[in-house]
Design a protein around this nucleic acid. Sequence first.
DNA 1: AGTGCATGAATGACGGTTCATTCATATGTT
DNA 2: AACATATGAATGAACCGTCATTCATGCACT
Lengths: 188, 188
Amino acid sequence: MEDDKKERIREAAIKVMAETGFFNTKTSSVAEEAGVAVGTIYNYFRSKDEILEYIFAVELKKRLTILNRLRESTEGFWGKLDRFLSYHFQEIIKQPEIGRILVREKEYPRKNGATQISGYLQKIPEAIELMLNEAMERGEIGKHKAKVVAAIIFGAVQGVVEKTVNTDDFSLLTTAAQDLVELLKKGL
Amino acid sequence: MEDDKKERIREAAIKVMAETGFFNTKTSSVAEEAGVAVGTIYNYFRSKDEILEYIFAVELKKRLTILNRLRESTEGFWGKLDRFLSYHFQEIIKQPEIGRILVREKEYPRKNGATQISGYLQKIPEAIELMLNEAMERGEIGKHKAKVVAAIIFGAVQGVVEKTVNTDDFSLLTTAAQDLVELLKKGL
DNA sequence: AGTGCATGAATGACGGTTCATTCATATGTT
DNA sequence: AACATATGAATGAACCGTCATTCATGCACT
């Protein structure tokens, strides 16, 4: 049995939690799926909560890296948005379980105070809001309430992901980025 | 102490579950909030799950009634959508806890098989999809994939509600219906 | 022979549900 | 009107299954 236990546990947790939801997931199931003993999990994570937190951290870091890279590019707003959404949707096509977890477990209140999750998650709509404001100043898009628009975009993305994972119709996601960008471009 | 225990329990559950989330809500807390004994809950509900199911049933029935009434009216698509969204957002302004629960607890996998919740909830985007198709046939809006658009609208609505309850900024909701309709009207 | 990771049975807290009991109110009887 | 009895809603302490977490022991590699 080879190494990188932490990664093995993360992948197992993604699989099991996507299936049954965080609260109905037993650490013993995660252990079994990962092929390790229950106790081993606790050599790498302080608690069950921390596993979920780690899952979010990994995924959101990937997306924020993309967003920051895009911010610096000279591309127009719509190109940036299209790139970002395409990346996000591709990731979910590759691993639908991630989609399930991201839409389902976000923001759920945990027993012992807040986790980092909300904090991490906030940053995505914030980044979009920032890009929106820049685009408005450049006159690339008309004046709108960036906050509301960001919430709409963020929500629309989740809506499409949700529909996809609920119906297992991944064809939706292959064109969703263009569909959405097109709609928004005309709309704003 | 007057009557209608079931209603008292429903209201208490809304309050407590909005605060702590379904899975962190103890039946004893609901009982306390409702001013009844724990056992009394079980005279009106078979389980904790059933309380949540009932909360959804009540709220979704209200919304589906509106939607069906609108379907029969001769009003155009955009008027209908505006009316529906206005109603929904007003309800959440009146009782933000409902908003929290609707966006957070939807579709969460329960231990003992499926609940009615997903089934009920499906009907909203379905109704929107239907209205969209009718509007496209009438030529009121251009041809689009109704399924994707319905998912986008449904998601966008949730996004705005989520933003609102997370920031406690209810001013968002007062104009959100018009903002959203306007954006979509131009976009489609 | 010491260090570090892995193990999984044991532990203990927690909380949903049950049910024997209480109690308020209604009904019937004189 | 006074009393007896029946009904079923309300109660909450106790029960019991369910896990998250711990830790004593085993194992491997240096």
